[in-house]
C-alpha cells in the first residue's frame, strides 16, 4: 500500500480517507456483529466527531478485509487525533479485528498504522466542498426555520 498520508481530495477544506485493512483470520463474523450493533445503536459513536460528513465500514472479499471511507473537514492529522482521543474504545472494538492494530491510543503508532493502510482516491467528487459539517447543519436549521416562517405568513386562516 502506498505509504502516504495524502488525501485524494482536490478540495481545500475537505479531506477523504479510504482505508483497506486485512481482517484477522476467522474474525470477520464477529466484526460484522460489532458493526451491526453500532448500526442499530441509538447514537453513533461517530457523532462525537463533528467533522465527519459521511462514513462507512464495509467487509470485503468474503471477510478478508475491512474497508473504511469517510469525508471530513480539516486536515488528516487533526482528524486522526480526534479519532484517537474521542472514540478510542469504538475504534478498538472495530479495528481490533484487523491485523496489526496497535490500538487507538497512544497516537503515534495509530497514526502510523492508518498511514500504512490508506489508499488515496484517484478521483474524488464533492457536491458542496466548501461546507463543513457544522455549516451544513446550521444552514439546514436556517432553512427549516425560514420555511416555517414564510409559510406561517402565507397560510390562509383555517376555517375550522
Amino acid at each position: 500500500m502506498s505509504p502516504s498520508a495524502e488525501s485524494g481530495s482536490p478540495y481545500e477544506n475537505i479531506t477523504e480517507m479510504t482505508l483497506l485493512t486485512p481482517i484477522k483470520d476467522g474474525e470477520a463474523d464477529e466484526l460484522a456483529q460489532v458493526l451491526a450493533a453500532v448500526q442499530i445503536a441509538e447514537d453513533s459513536p461517530i457523532k462525537k466527531i463533528s467533522t465527519i460528513h459521511y462514513a462507512r465500514w464495509v467487509i470485503l472479499d468474503e471477510g478478508a478485509r475491512l474497508l473504511f471511507t469517510s469525508n471530513f473537514d480539516g486536515t488528516w492529522e487533526k482528524y486522526l487525533r480526534d479519532f484517537s482521543e474521542k472514540i478510542p474504545e469504538g475504534l478498538d472494538a472495530i479495528w481490533g479485528h484487523c491485523v496489526g492494530w496497535p490500538g487507538a491510543q497512544p497516537f503515534a503508532p495509530f497514526r502510523k498504522w492508518v498511514d500504512r493502510h490508506q489508499v488515496p482516491a484517484n478521483l474524488f467528487y464533492a457536491a458542496y466542498p466548501e461546507s463543513t459539517v457544522r455549516e451544513v447543519q446550521r444552514a439546514l436549521d436556517w432553512k427549516e426555520k425560514t420555511e416555517r416562517f414564510v409559510a406561517e405568513l402565507a397560510k390562509p386562516p383555517r376555517s375550522s
Binding site: S50, D73, R81, S131, T132, V133, R134, E135, Q137, R138, D141
Partner: peptide, 22 residues
C-alpha cells in the same frame, strides 16, 4: 498544537464546532 493552536484556530477564528460557521 493541541492547546494554544487548536483554540486559536478552531475556537477563536473558526467556531465551526459551535455552529458559528464563518
Amino acid at each position: 498544537s493541541r492547546q494554544f493552536e487548536f483554540v486559536q484556530e478552531e475556537w477563536i477564528n473558526k467556531g465551526d464546532l459551535f455552529f458559528l460557521d464563518g
